[in-house]
Amino acid sequence: MKKQTAFLVRRLLAARMPVILVALIISVTLMTDGQFVQFANIVNVLRQVSFEATIAFGMTAIIITGGIDLSVGSLVALTGVAAALVMRATGDFSPGLAIALGGLTAVVLGGGVGAMSGVVVAWCAIPPFIVTLAAMLIARGAALLLCNGQPVDGLPEQVLFLGRGFVFEDVIGKSLPFPVLIMLIVYALFAFTLNRTVFGRDVVAVGSNEEAARLSGISVRRAKLLVYVLTGAVCGLVGLLHDGKLNVGDPKVAEMWELNVIAAVVVGGTSLFGGRGTMTGTLIGALIIGVLNNALNLMHVEHFWQKVVLGAVILTAALADAGLRTLERKTE
């Protein structure tokens, strides 16, 4: 009997994320007299979470290896400015080519900075917290230096589609914002990589027991390096989209994003100790935070209170994770 209860509790805890999200959506709908479920509002929530959620998938991979990346926000700013400079310089020839070049620049630059962090983390055995804290400051400074602290404007107007446009607008109307499509594609790619590829399994093995992974012939360093490269590249992608949202490359954007991104990952059930986590959890975690913020806005809750609520949610998620671990130890 006791065993069955424990089993039930564990299944509930394991499947808690979608349950919580649905419960949240229902209660929010009731509390806002249905305002929340209006189509435009839902699309709005999705668009609001899309940038940070996209990065959160990369962050999930890093956290599963037992690492952390504090430089993601700065990387969005740096790659955004770099992409803007490239697009401004080449925009006169062909807007399409300019955007392609800008995007390439952003992704390669983001991946490159990620690679530098990754190399130091994997080869020099310095805690990722310190390495990426340094990378965060360096990248932010570099973003400001690149453009003298002034937003870079004069971008080809087509770039606006990347941040504000809708896909298949003629067919389905304003229902699928371009950044949301990108978020879903990145989600699918990362989920596939984590669950179905050798590299994904290496990532889990490294976070679960690094020593065992190494002694099984897995290249621990390569796995660690790659998650930082991938996350950096994703930041570059978001940097480009962000240019499209603002129509400028601004070195001051995405402040504190690293913390919001980590919050989404943790609320999504990924353990900061490494070794366990899912991309779907992170997607749901990002949505939970997005829905909450949106609901608090709709209910005209003061902005200051929103921070308190978000903090409480993160703490609850961490407590649930700790509870799950204790329960697992006890039922072993």
């Binding site: 889990v204 093995a205 992974a213």
Partner: peptide
């Protein structure tokens, strides 16, 4: 425990650890 296993992962994952090339 310290050097051999991924303790919280499945028997399947532990049996194929480091040898996934053979099945991919």
């Amino acid at each position: 425990k310290r050097e051999g296993f991924l303790l919280h992962r499945s028997l399947r994952e532990n049996l194929t650890l480091g040898h996934l090339k053979d099945v991919s």
